[in-house]
């Protein structure tokens, strides 16, 4: 049995496909990341796994239970940290956890013990009896992670857990997610931060427009695109790309930059200069591939973090916090 089994999942909203035929299996104990730009279908997928939305088509099982016919059992098996805040900020941290424990039918002693455990894990013991209203964004996220773990779920969903947090807090959250590995919790993490997936995940599924475009461990994915990535800026990108292509390179133009791949970049760069002739090369650089390059390789387009959307999300979160 797998922790999560998705087969041919399709979700349509008024005829528009948000999720377009995803199939996926996630093992117990794995940290798995769904990576993709905003609007790729990550949150929709998680909402279906968490029984908040019904699939239009396809079979989805979580912890061996069908999300449509055994929704109650699925809910018992999972913990979830939503993209948008979902704490009651007029309650204390302890009260939020206690109500959560009650909603999951935990006995009194069990609740009391577990509250201490999860608070210790996210280092919030000292603030246990403060109103959540007084918490910073990072503290709220930590408390939400603690709450997601409160009822000892076998599977934890984290939907964009570090969205809108500063880099230092982000690293902090990453540490907690790392700790979950030792606890044996299966984690499904959605993110649009490449770095986050790269650092945390055992396996990554890159999704774009509701489809999985690549699946594997971060190093497998990076290896799959074949060696180093060379980026060239020049006076005539189209002409240069044509020259490179006719000389055995696989050249792609993304954002006015030519991207080529090479087993050993140092050997190929002099050849590039030689081929350029009258085209002026403004800059040339190479690096080992990142997940961003993987994304570009499989989708043929630049990966944008869509600053506008992200600002919108941060603002929304800020408003809610009041």
């Amino acid at each position: 049995m797998k922790a999560i089994e998705i087969e041919g999942l399709i979700k349509e909203f008024d005829g528009i496909r948000a999720v377009d035929g995803i199939s996926l299996e996630i093992e117990y104990g794995e940290i798995f990341s769904l990576l993709g730009p905003n609007g790729a279908g990550k949150t929709t997928t998680i909402s279906i796994l968490a029984t908040l939305l019904k699939p239009t088509k396809g079979k989805v099982k979580v912890n061996g239970y069908d999300v449509v016919t055994q929704a109650g059992k699925v809910r018992h098996s999972i913990g979830i940290v939503f993209q948008d805040p979902s704490l009651d900020d007029r309650l204390t941290a302890r009260e939020n956890l206690d109500i959560h424990g009650r909603l999951y039918h935990m006995k009194k002693d069990e609740r009391r013990k577990r509250i201490e455990e999860v608070l210790e894990m996210v280092e919030l013991q000292e603030r246990a009896d403060s109103l959540v209203k007084t918490f910073s964004g990072g503290m709220r996220r930590r408390l939400e992670i603690a709450r997601g773990l409160m009822h000892k779920p076998r599977i934890l969903f984290l939907d964009e857990p570090t969205l809108g947090l500063d880099p230092q807090t982000r690293r902090h959250i990453w540490n907690y997610i790392e700790k979950l590995r030792n606890e044996g919790v299966t984690v499904l993490l959605t993110t649009h931060y490449m770095e986050e997936a790269d650092k945390l995940a055992d396996r990554v599924a890159i999704i774009d427009k509701g489809k999985i475009v690549a699946l594997g461990s971060p190093s497998e994915l990076k290896d799959s695109i074949g060696g180093d990535v060379i980026k060239i800026r020049c006076s005539d990108a189209n002409k240069m790309a044509a020259i490179l292509s006719s000389n055995g390179f696989n050249a792609m133009i993304v954002d006015n930059e030519i991207i080529i791949k090479a087993k050993k970049a140092e050997k190929e760069i002099p050849r590039v200069f030689a081929l350029a002739k009258d085209i002026e090369i403004k800059s040339i650089m190479y690096k080992e591939p990142s997940l961003e390059d993987v994304f570009i390789h499989y989708t043929g387009k630049a990966y944008r973090e869509e600053a506008g959307d992200e600002m919108e999300a941060i603002k929304r979160r800020w408003r809610m916090r009041r």
Partner: peptide, 14 residues
């Protein structure tokens, strides 16, 4: 609904 706590209750096994 705005503050999301409803979601917390909707995913609980109740």
């Amino acid at each position: 609904r705005e503050f999301g706590f409803l979601k917390e209750m909707l995913v609980a096994p109740i």
